[in-house]
């Protein structure tokens, strides 16, 4: 049992995860980028006296450095979703009104950042000795010791965020309309991982040392299931993580890698400055000038238009 859930499953999941991502990324990479099609979201760099604000230089990058800046903003603070948000004061009500999309940006951001911090925290299971940076992250995250043992800030945030992201799909008819089984599944899975994780910490304390021993051994490719018993809840937690890993490459979760391949974002608006080559360009049938003049020769002559052949 523990060998299946503690060793075989993780190996299989990690293998699928890595190979799957490679497969997808290679597939994407092998698709050509025939044209340079950035979406420009601000004034372009044109005449030197048209001054652009710093954010405009990123929203309409005129070189690769600015493009990287644009990507960073997109990845780190979800620039485009932010654009979506409005905080307006309605004249008639004198009230600040936020639209629902503000919440999408906020909860999306909270969700992804806490996921990252949680991932980093879990790295301590794979390092001996534990690097100091992990301690720092953990200490900050555990700053507010709400319950004992430490309930991490990110644990609360991710549960809140997942709940919000799930419920907006259920409650809003517009979201219900576009939501697929896969969308609920991914959220439920991540929610499940988070809930079991929190439970492991607070209610059903598991032997972390034993888990770490297992993790290290798996990492060393000499898996040993430790003698101390590891709780079934942990295996449930791990099984869900493995499912998530194996599911990842074949699902929409690949947006994490995909955004780096998005031609409207990862290309600078250097369209008229630098030539972009289409790798599969082929000659097409055109209507050359001499054929045109041949057809309309007399009419052109009558109209006094200059001709190649008199």
């Amino acid at each position: 049992m523990s060998t299946l859930f503690g060793v075989i499953l993780p190996y299989a999941a990690i293998a699928i995860f890595i190979l799957g991502i490679l497969y997808k990324v290679v597939k994407w990479g092998r698709s050509a980028v025939p044209f340079r099609i950035p979406t420009t979201c601000a004034q372009a760099e044109t005449l030197p006296w048209i001054k652009r604000k710093p954010h405009e230089k990123l929203d309409n990058p005129s070189n690769n450095l600015a493009m990287v800046g644009r990507m960073l903003l997109e990845v780190l603070i979800f620039r485009s979703l932010w654009r979506n948000t409005r905080a307006e004061i309605k004249a008639d009500k004198q009230k600040l009104i936020y639209s629902g999309s503000k919440f999408l940006w906020l909860f999306g951001l909270l969700f992804h950042w806490s996921l990252l911090v949680i991932l980093i925290r879990h790295c301590r299971l794979f390092f001996e000795p534990v690097p100091w940076i992990l301690d720092v992250v953990e200490n900050i995250d555990g700053m507010f010791e709400i319950v004992i043992p430490t309930l991490y800030l990110t644990d609360i945030i991710i549960l809140l965020a997942v709940t919000y992201l799930f419920f907006r799909r259920v409650v809003f008819s517009q979201m219900r309309y576009i939501s697929l089984l896969a969308d609920y599944f991914a959220l439920l899975l991540i929610g499940g991982v988070a809930v079991t994780g929190v439970c492991l910490r607070i209610f059903f304390h598991t032997d972390v040392e034993a888990v770490k021993e297992l993790a290290m051994s798996v990492l060393r490719f000499s898996p040993e299931v430790p003698e101390q018993s590891i709780s079934w809840l942990f295996y449930l937690h791990l099984a869900m993580v493995c499912t998530l890993l194996a599911y990842f490459p074949f699902s929409k979760l690949m947006h994490a890698a995909g955004i780096f391949f998005s031609p409207t974002r990862n290309m600078a608006n250097t369209n008229r400055v630098k030539r972009h080559v289409n790798p599969w360009d082929y000659p097409v049938k055109v209507h050359p000038y001499h054929e045109y003049e041949e057809e309309f020769h007399d009419k052109m002559e009558q109209a006094g238009l200059p001709l190649e052949k008199e």
């Binding site: 997808k24 994407w28 929409k252 995909g258 998005s262």
Partner: peptide, 11 residues
């Protein structure tokens, strides 16, 4: 890529 990565966030 666009057929693969949409998460249907509704933005």
């Amino acid at each position: 890529v666009y057929l693969d990565i949409c998460v249907r966030c509704g933005a």
